[in-house]
Amino acid sequence: MKCRYCSCLCIKKGKLKETQRYQCTVCKKYQQDQYRYTSYKVSDAELVDLLKEGVGVRSISRILKISTTTVMSRILKISADLKRPYPIVKGNCYEVDELFTYVGHKKNRICVCYSLEPKSGAIIDVVVGRRNKTTLRKVTETLVL
């Protein structure tokens, strides 16, 4: 077997749960022929498509045969890379509105604040959290140039 890192020769060096492990003779890194857990094969596009269809996190993990924590961490990674789709133009008029909902039961009330451009109906920014000044400030600060 050839090393994945340096392409040198690997020798047999122990077993891990009945799977043969190999060690590189040069860089001394361990590796296997085949790995059981294949969550790296699932692309971000597949995950986003399922989310757009309204599939839940547990259903996604069951369909793709990967862990729910892996699904959640990948969703958070994808959401961190999202950019605002519409630029904020100086001189335009924007509306800021809020709506309330709850998670689980009525005591867990949350506020969704958003800003939109009334002419096109495009949503500029969305913030989810408690109804307080800091949540509203996050939405209004994006509009101030």
Results as ranks from 00 to 15, higher is better:
50 L>I: 04
24 C>P: 00
64 L>C: 02
96 V>L: 10
43 S>L: 05
63 I>H: 12
114 Y>L: 14
72 M>W: 00
104 G>Y: 01
77 K>V: 11
88 I>A: 05
55 V>K: 03
38 T>Q: 13
19 T>W: 07
31 Q>R: 01
99 L>Y: 10
54 G>S: 01
48 V>Y: 09
62 R>Q: 15
103 V>L: 15
37 Y>M: 02
63 I>Q: 12
72 M>L: 15
108 N>T: 07
22 Y>S: 03
87 P>L: 00
100 F>I: 04
110 I>N: 08
102 Y>W: 13
117 E>K: 10
37 Y>Q: 07
20 Q>P: 02
113 C>F: 10
106 K>Q: 11
60 I>G: 07
24 C>A: 02
20 Q>S: 10
89 V>Q: 09
30 Y>E: 13
68 T>P: 11
91 G>M: 11
56 G>F: 09
112 V>A: 10
100 F>K: 11
116 L>F: 14
93 C>E: 14
47 L>H: 08
70 T>I: 09
39 S>G: 09
43 S>Q: 03
112 V>L: 12
96 V>W: 00
66 I>G: 04
45 A>R: 14
80 A>S: 15
44 D>C: 06
89 V>F: 08
71 V>C: 01
32 Q>G: 08
66 I>Y: 07
89 V>K: 13
25 T>C: 08
86 Y>G: 06
91 G>A: 00
110 I>A: 01
52 K>T: 12
75 I>S: 02
112 V>H: 01
46 E>L: 05
16 L>F: 13
69 T>K: 09
49 D>R: 15
116 L>W: 03
80 A>L: 15
28 K>M: 02
53 E>Y: 06
45 A>L: 15
36 R>V: 14
86 Y>E: 15
117 E>Q: 11
99 L>E: 11
102 Y>D: 08
65 K>T: 10
64 L>H: 08
96 V>S: 07
21 R>C: 01
49 D>L: 12
46 E>P: 02
41 K>I: 02
72 M>K: 06
27 C>L: 03
118 P>K: 01
107 K>T: 03
26 V>E: 11
21 R>T: 06
56 G>Y: 07
30 Y>K: 09
17 K>W: 12
24 C>T: 02
54 G>M: 02
39 S>F: 05
91 G>I: 06
98 E>C: 02
